[in-house]
Nucleic acid binder design. Structure first.
Lengths: 229, 229
DNA sequence: CAGGTCGGGTGAACACTGTTCACACAGAGT
DNA sequence: ACTCTGTGTGAACAGTGTTCACCCGACCTG
């Protein structure tokens, strides 16, 4: 019945459509197959099972978010580090708001039933995304715009973790220089998560944009020293 | 078979045990019934369906978190506002870490299949929790410890939302005085959400306590002016 | 051209899920 | 003794993920 041969891309695309329409629970093997004009067992030729489908989907979405940030960066003046970090952050937030179900799948409460394969494609994609932001902070450091911290003031555990992270991502930074990166990542993820999950609805109704954008500006001000411009 | 008559509390307790063991998907009507020594249809005498069970569970967990914060407050000097806010925040974080599945259910990615009943018990419980923190910020304001902001600098939309929120929670505060409360709520939820979801694992491994606690201290410093002590 | 191999697809089946239905059984009230 | 009500049951329905034996058509080989 299938006119075109099945592809992994087609599987992911249909799964994603279902995710958008009805959340993770709506990703139903039989329905994916039906929309592809095929019966359920056929999919098991391409995918080990439903979890495999989710892994593929999470990876694709993570990469799409990364790409959205890269697009935003491409439109920036290369020498304006603050502008670049702002653009990437806002692009990430915009992508999250426009793709709430996908964001929830990637950065929301982990699906307890689903366990990401150790060292699998999802963690790779996550590291690509982290690396993108990491490189922005390297730029900021080089430009002397980063509010760094002395390694000495860090607790030993935190210092070790930060050093290991820098090594893993190949960032030429001291722990005290990595810290603003992690703080930025942490707070950005928090701001976007809470907004996307709608936990501010009781205060701001459906549109918390103004407040969220203020919070992002506040975060940038905490991370970067004012520019010469 | 049931020796004791079924109670709503027993239903909630069993559901919660299943949640802890295997996540939201593990809350299975038949299994709840089985553990209560009864068959599934019997539960429908007490509950309209699975969603009803979730509503009850979410409400119970929200109230438990509120109670945990209240307990922490009871052990504080009544005149030390900063200490009280810190204690409540740390108590919330501690509860979240010790009850990750429950926290995920209440403050995580909303289950798309489940829709909280409008104006139902879950939103009431949420408002009770919000009110608790709101009252702490009223204390801080009275003690002159709150970093407030002029109403004039707020964008009209934000100002209106903050005013409406103050009115709804019966907080005698101007919008510029409510703002730190909402900022605190927002950032606290972000910090705890990201930590509980494990999205910092790639940096800090299983124990991100030191970093998270630093973030909370930083948040408090942003919200409050230093005390006279 | 005959024959075998193999990727890709099918229908049936299994063990689950939430939910509904007709039914049964105990105790209280009249 | 009769009904009524609260409580629980077994069977059933329409779904779910997954596995199994089977099958068919295209391709390569002798």
């Amino acid at each position: 019945m299938a006119t075109t041969p099945l592809t992994l891309d087609a599987l992911v695309a249909t799964s994603r459509a279902l995710l958008v329409e009805g959340g993770p629970d709506a990703i139903v093997v039989r329905e994916v197959a039906r929309r592809l004009g095929v019966t359920a067992p056929a999919l098991y030729r391409y995918v080990r099972g439903r979890d495999d489908l989710l892994t593929l989907l999470i990876t694709a979405c993570t990469d799409e978010a990364t790409a959205a940030c890269l697009d935003a960066l491409a439109a920036c003046r290369p020498d304006d580090v603050e502008g670049r970090i702002r653009a990437a952050t806002l692009a990430f937030r915009a992508w999250a708001l426009q793709h709430r179900p996908e964001f929830g799948l990637v950065y929301g409460t982990p699906l307890m039933h689903y366990a990401a394969p150790e060292g699998g494609p999802t963690v790779d994609a996550g590291q690509r995304f982290g690396g993108l932001f990491g490189s922005l902070f390297v730029e900021a450091l080089a430009a002397g715009r980063l509010r760094t911290v002395d390694d000495g003031v860090l607790s030993p555990g935190v210092r070790a973790s930060l050093a290991a992270t820098a090594a893993r991502l190949d960032l030429p930074m001291r722990p005290g220089e990595v810290r603003p990166f992690i703080v930025g990542w942490h707070r950005m993820l928090g701001i976007v998560s809470v907004e996307v999950a709608g936990h501010l609805r009781w205060v701001f109704g459906e549109d918390a944009s103004a407040f969220a954008e203020e919070q992002i500006e506040e975060l940038l001000a905490d991370l970067l020293v004012p520019g010469a411009t």
